[in-house]
Nucleic acid binder design. Sequence first.
DNA 1: GCCATTAGATACGCACACGTTTCTTATTTG
DNA 2: CAAATAAGAAACGTGTGCGTATCTAATGGC
Lengths: 188, 188
Amino acid sequence: MGRRRGEALEAAILEAAWDELSERGYANLTVDSVARRAGTSKPVLYRRWPDKQRLVEAAVVRRNVIQLVAPADTGSLRGDLIATLTEMNEKRGPFLAQLSMLLAGYFAETESSFAELREAVLAGRRSGRDEIMGRAIERGEIDPAKLTPRIASLPFELLRSEAMMTLRPVAPEVIEEIVDTIFLPLVR
Amino acid sequence: MGRRRGEALEAAILEAAWDELSERGYANLTVDSVARRAGTSKPVLYRRWPDKQRLVEAAVVRRNVIQLVAPADTGSLRGDLIATLTEMNEKRGPFLAQLSMLLAGYFAETESSFAELREAVLAGRRSGRDEIMGRAIERGEIDPAKLTPRIASLPFELLRSEAMMTLRPVAPEVIEEIVDTIFLPLVR
DNA sequence: GCCATTAGATACGCACACGTTTCTTATTTG
DNA sequence: CAAATAAGAAACGTGTGCGTATCTAATGGC
């Protein structure tokens, strides 16, 4: 295969950086390992990003932009929730988990928190959560009086909490347990 | 001041390790810096703990043991929960919240997770949670069939999650909301 | 098809921090 | 007071990984 340049090369490098990050973690990611995985060499990386941190930041940003999770529409609240949570778990789980690690130093320096960053990132965007809940109310699956903001975000909160605590993919049974024994009993 | 030995010396070292950890994070904590801060030198540390990881583990365990929260006994499930969660929030909130951030590098190095470290720290100890739930069952406040392990730990999970996301003390109203609108409806 | 550009290989200097070794000196024990 | 024990200082070896420098060869623009 030929020698890649510009955009294609850059994409391959950031892809490799993300893979290293999610498989081996930030501490075990080396600039060399990223270069090797991308089938190139270190100087190519340093021509684009001034240091390891910026490289990883770029990889994280790219991934986040690419992997937005669209809320599922299966026809039932339970189906929507399980499908969406499962997709989040698969696509974004490792992302969120690693992110909190990466940003550790950043939070300490800026006195900000994960919640604030998330708020800024999600600003203006109508959350998939509201969409799912809205449809469920129309179908009469939810008693709107019971759907406080905290309860509406509960399944997502619990998935994130589980992912962050274990730093591993959450088992499908756990997702079902959250939906069936905690969330659904609270809203109908 | 004289030369410290045994217990006193060990305590001073672990105190210093904790301070370094909370001020500078795991990645910036060095065995040298801990030794210097404790007013001693590296070999003294290596005579006690085989490596940096075990040293930090010991410091975390010690801190955790010191700040144990005894489960409250107020006569009602709601009272017990709110009192205990409030005390946890005040005593341990900052501790837990910062911990995951600070230990980022540690988790990456050891391929372990927050959950695993927590398991190690709590090993063998009967949790206050079980005590509170046990009393509530005797009083007939809880339907035991509904008390799955996940639901039993739910209020504590939510408090921790809230603390970790915001990195700030959790408001008393949030604690009440968790207990009154989420936990209690699920168990009776 | 020629030339500027840039990918890719290799090797190097450097800083840092772990964990060890050696030795001196203070403290405890009996 | 003597002997055993452990603290504390200093220096070292070692591995690792960052960031750079040097060179070659492939690619795209013109």
